[in-house]
Design a protein around this nucleic acid. Sequence first.
DNA 1: CGCATTTGACCGTT
DNA 2: AACGGTCAAATGCG
Length: 314
Amino acid sequence: MESSKLASTATGRRRVIGELILGRKSAQQLEDLLRKSPGTDDIDGSEMTSARVLVNKILDSYNQILSNISSGESDVVSEVPAVDSPFLDGRRKSEDSGESCKTSVRKDRRGCYKRRRTSETRIRETSTLIDDGHAWRKYGQKPILHATHPRSYFRCTHRFDHGCQATKHVQKIQDDPPKFRTTYYDNHTCNNLSKSPQVIIMDPTAGDNSSNIIWNFESQIEPDYEPNDPVKQENKEKVQDFPHNKSGWPDYIISPNHLTTFDQTSGPLTAFSSGSDLGDVISSDVYSCTASTRNMEMDHLIVGSVFGDDFLKY
DNA sequence: CGCATTTGACCGTT
DNA sequence: AACGGTCAAATGCG
């Protein structure tokens, strides 16, 4: 096929990937349409279900192909296994090796850390701020060079009581329409979800733009907005255990293993499907979590590694 | 009063 | 030296 010829060169591969991404996007839009119109005159419920299954299969195929073909295409899609254990990360060492610090002017400065060079990251871009169901605590904010908005730094609230090392960085990267990039580092080991992940349509007025369908988790702290954010309280109050989330990964996050882990029984699919008992937090604007919704995030989530500050997206 | 956020300073990497 | 990431005292809030 022509695509295989194309795929043999770098530029050809990019084109193939581009086409695949377009195809996937179309499938996602179709999926969305199916969800929005649960029953029409022409299609009964079972046919609709079949259609959704088909769409899911198409999306899975796209994802599979993309993840395979782009394994070396770092600037298009990246999928890089963890380079080092979260607990061997420099930041971790800083926690428990304070004595290795240079003599500091301040009293025992715990922060003898190393800048993260390569570590497991998941990068997500959304048109709103996200709350992934975990309780985060903001520990810093910094202006970033050549960035119009500061970057906010969050760590898991259970860092100290459960030793959870998960952190994330949130940065607004675009004003109009607003766009936020959230970079997750390391796994949650606390297994504590403050609340269920949610999927909603953020901006119902922008109906024709499928990319507006995002994972919204109400608002996380806005990096450069009003600091008095109700989210703080939400994170605080809704902490509860979700024992089924054994992996420590938020259910909507692609595990570092691969996209294909979706097919596994303990994967996000299962978790989402079990969302029926979460209805109390799903508003009218919120999609219930179905198996198919997981694919929507593919537009926004990038699994990869960060080398320096270059991140890889498509 | 306890906990989360803010913010300036500190530290390691580049 | 610049930069990004983190710490921790100060502050705010419920």
